[in-house]
Design a protein around this nucleic acid. Structure first.
Lengths: 231, 231
DNA sequence: TGAATAGTGTCTATCAGACAGTATGAC
DNA sequence: GTCATACTGTCTGATAGACACTATTCA
């Protein structure tokens, strides 16, 4: 049994969404010390009496601080050390979550704020939260290259043009329409919906969705390997 | 400040090496309860007085339980929950490490054992250590597809045939010599050593090593993206 | 010389980018 | 009809697999 002082264990959540073609993350104003009054990632201590696993803590944080249930949620990385929190040695299991902005209320609520990640580069953040956000964005961009993870940033049904626009925002560049469609088709994760189309004053676009059998296995490996769980 | 019972925080290390063309991991016999006497991953509590970050704890575990300093070490994933340890709610920050067997003593020491990961599938392990090993092997195999991470499983200088043999072991299949050489060359991480060759009763092979400027950036992204830090 | 392994040349199938073409709606 | 956006055909250059070829050592 350990005789050492135990670290404090919390979770932090990088909740990402697209607003006006910009990748944004939710910040909450801290109402307790340390860093009281500053904008930080939503987070909280693990409640060992009510959470079975740390992911439950992250779900609870999302429900409490963002009034959200069941967006895509994935463990990101764990940030540890003596220096990251003035209260002492701490462990933060960081998660990132993806949600379509259509599921969000227009107003994030008091002491809540959506900040474009592009604007966060220079700015200061409490703890090592700037590192956590960077890691989350990096993970999302990496997975965008070989999976359909970004579907979680748009509503359940979508057109391929909408999906391509999401990819272009995330990857920060134009994609060729033909190549993009070949690419997502090859992933084999999407299915066209028979009669469903989206009208917008021109040729209607077919609607797609993730195949029901593919829910939860959106992250596909480059080629040879099976579905990746982490990475 | 939290009023909840804090979880116990430990680190576990999946130390991987190649022995007789088999990927093996080091197990240690537990000398305390729970699971006393059983074979488990080397691990230990975070020592908040001497470790700056959890990676230091992992380094300490490797030094103590495997008499190893500075092999390749990477954070894998964090395993949490009430159920994984009979002593109560716990957090294990899992790491994986790679080391060439040439750096290992012939005898792993008392209550230490190298086990081929292929033999661990059916067998039971304490805690969720079987999951941790699976995750580590999976991560290693994934990265083998698009990086030169496996160089850490062989000595600093090596021939391309030796490296290819490592890849074939990890990926469990034959690779075409031409394609393999094109592939690793394209990664741009290796450099041939001028006069150095390896003799073995036939045509000598050129020796290679990781470019000194590339140490620590062995994990390369598929194409467009920068170096991946996690994933 | 032959055996064994190292290393290269090169054909071909496949795939991604480029880009032009056609399709279908609103007006 | 025009305009706007959806979708497809197809050329081309790059890449990976296949596999035969040459190269260099020892016995």
């Amino acid at each position: 049994m350990s005789t050492y002082t135990q670290p404090l264990v919390s979770v932090d959540v990088v909740l990402l969404t697209l607003k006006d073609n910009q990748l944004c993350t939710l910040l909450a104003r801290r109402d307790v010390e340390p860093f009281k009054g500053e904008w930080a990632l939503p987070g909280g201590y693990v409640h060992t009496d009510e959470d079975e696993v740390a992911e439950d803590s992250a779900v609870r944080v999302l429900a409490t601080k963002a009034k959200l249930t069941s967006p895509y949620l994935e463990q990101l990385q764990t940030f540890t050390g003596r220096a990251r929190d003035p209260r002492g040695w701490s462990v933060s299991v960081a998660y990132f979550a993806l949600v379509p902005s259509s599921l969000l209320p227009a107003d994030p609520g008091p002491n809540r704020r959506w900040v474009p990640v592009a604007e966060m580069d220079g700015s200061e953040m409490p703890f090592d939260h700037a590192d956590i956000v960077r890691a989350a964005v990096h993970r999302l961009r990496s997975k965008t290259l070989y999976s359909t993870l970004p579907v979680h940033l748009i509503p359940e049904m979508f057109t391929l043009s909408q999906l391509q626009a999401v990819y272009e925002t995330l990857l920060q560049g134009k994609l060729d329409k033909r190549s993009f469609r070949r690419h997502v088709e090859a992933l084999g994760v999407l299915e066209a919906l028979n009669g469903q189309t989206l009208q917008a004053g021109h040729r209607p676009a077919r609607m797609y969705r993730v195949k029901p059998s593919m829910r939860g296995t959106l992250t596909l490996a480059p080629k040879n390997l099976d579905v990746l769980s982490v990475d």
